[in-house]
Design a binder for these strands. Structure first.
Length: 184
DNA sequence: AGAGCGATGGCCT
DNA sequence: GGCCATCGCTCTA
């Protein structure tokens, strides 16, 4: 069960409130998606810009494919692929509100505050135990999947964070008033 | 074959 | 607010 993933910008909005779940040998962890960003092959901030290559190939797969990339020599970030096969687009999951397996997530993150468990794209992959082995897998039928969660009472749309190109696109979304987003 | 740099986070001041 | 860790992908030669 997934929201409509036919377009990255609409999907980024629609994914807010859904519960992202990961089941591992250590246990089950999950959180409500509270912050997202859309990326599309038409703009240079996207990994899919400039055509398909080995690294970005998952972005060109079927909607619901998972794209995990490694950056800054130490961080993993996770995206949910959207659009038809052959169109390089995806939604970056930027923050979660912890729900299940909070103790395990704290253990993985090595800290105490619940607000800091998953309030950033690389923090949430560490908390849920996501790495390269989930890259190019699919939300359907895997250990990493979506479940219905909460209905956001308000959604804020603004510009994306941490990029230097195509900075004007208002393709970042977060749940209004959430204490678990990376920044306002 | 090799240099440059990034959709970041943590720790320091 | 600023700096640094750390590595693999991409581009150029």
């Amino acid at each position: 069960m997934t929201p409509d993933l036919s377009n990255c910008v609409e999907a980024a909005r629609a994914l807010l409130g859904w519960k992202l779940v990961h089941e591992t040998a250590q246990g089950k962890t999950s959180g409500y998606i509270v912050e997202t960003e859309a990326y599309d092959m038409s703009e240079p901030a996207s990994h899919s810009y400039g055509g398909q290559r080995l690294r970005n190939a998952p972005m060109y797969q079927e909607k619901g494919t998972i794209y995990v990339y490694f950056t800054y020599g130490m961080h993993y970030c996770m995206n949910i692929v959207t659009g038809p096969k052959g169109h390089g687009q995806a939604v970056l999951i930027r923050a979660l509100q912890p729900v299940e397996g909070i103790e395990l997530m704290k253990q993985r993150r090595g800290l105490v505050s619940e607000k800091n468990i998953a309030n950033g794209p690389a923090k949430l992959t560490q908390a849920l135990g996501i790495d390269r082995s989930q890259n190019n897998t699919h939300l359907q039928g895997g250990a990493l999947y979506l479940e219905p969660g909460i209905t956001p009472q308000g959604i804020v749309q603004t510009t994306r964070i941490g990029i230097s190109k195509a900075v004007g696109h208002p393709w970042r979304f977060y749940i209004a008033g959430s204490d678990y987003i990376s920044r306002r």
